[in-house]
Simulated scan of single mutants.
Amino acid sequence: MSRPPIARTVPRTTADAVDDYLKTIYQFTEWQPEPITPSQLAERLALAPSSVTEMVKKLAAAGFVDHRPYSAIRLTAEGERRALATLRRHRLIETWLVEVHGYGWDEVHDEAEVLEHALSDRLLDSIDAQLGRPTRDPHGDLIPAADGTFHRPDAVRLDEAPAGTSGRVVRISDRDPDALRVLDQLGISLDEPVRVSDELIEAAGTALVRRSGSEVIISPAVASAVWLEVDSLPA
């Protein structure tokens, strides 16, 4: 049974809002190269476009983003530094909730959204040490080190991988908890060695062959949440 998200008990501050914006802008380009537009940012944050426009102006004035009217939004070096610091907090908390407190990987996002603004740096570092300084969260998203460094594997999205591609699962997006639950039911998890079947089933989705030799069919929506580090491409 899924746990309800905890109530927000810490008042939301302007700094919290800035961190949420910068984190969302960074995440949009984390696994693909196209920068985010104001309308996409408004959709991701579930806010009115007018509200997003005003905040983006403030972020630009503060030196966190580069943005001109009717153009995409890009983080400055300072904006990226702050976004990575927030992501580090968020992903360490998600890992802590799963590994120490028994949460499912589909239950932790909303909890971490609240706690990332509430925990002290000292407590966060203690959590990091307790977990053994992890480099990725339960979904395979990278946890930057305290100095902001990280290593991202070369990866391709499963729904864009050609038939016959072999690799291992290195990231599963947590944007859709239902997709995480489907993958749980199918037994697909991080580091799973898989191969895209030579016979794609266009009407049903992507046919995926697992290490055990069994084949499962994943819908396009679920396949779009999975990233593979490719071992070999079809000849």
Rank of each mutant, 00 (worst) to 15 (best):
R152E: 11
A179E: 01
S173K: 10
A161K: 10
P162C: 11
V196T: 08
R175N: 01
D154W: 14
V169S: 03
S166G: 08
A155Y: 01
T149F: 03
R181N: 02
R171P: 00
L190S: 09
V156R: 15
S189Y: 13
A161V: 08
R195F: 00
V170C: 08
R157A: 12
A155S: 14
P153F: 04
V156L: 15
T165W: 11
A163V: 12
I188T: 05
R168F: 05
D154I: 02
R171L: 10
R181Q: 15
H151E: 12
P193C: 04
R157G: 11
R152N: 07
L180Q: 12
L183C: 02
V194M: 10
Q185I: 09
P162K: 14
L158F: 06
D176A: 14
D154S: 09
E160N: 09
D191H: 05
H151L: 14
S189C: 12
T149W: 05
R175V: 11
H151V: 13
V170W: 00
V182F: 06
R175Q: 05
R168M: 05
I188H: 01
I172P: 06
R152A: 15
P193W: 05
V182I: 15
D184P: 01
D159K: 07
G167Q: 00
R181E: 08
E160G: 04
D184C: 04
H151I: 14
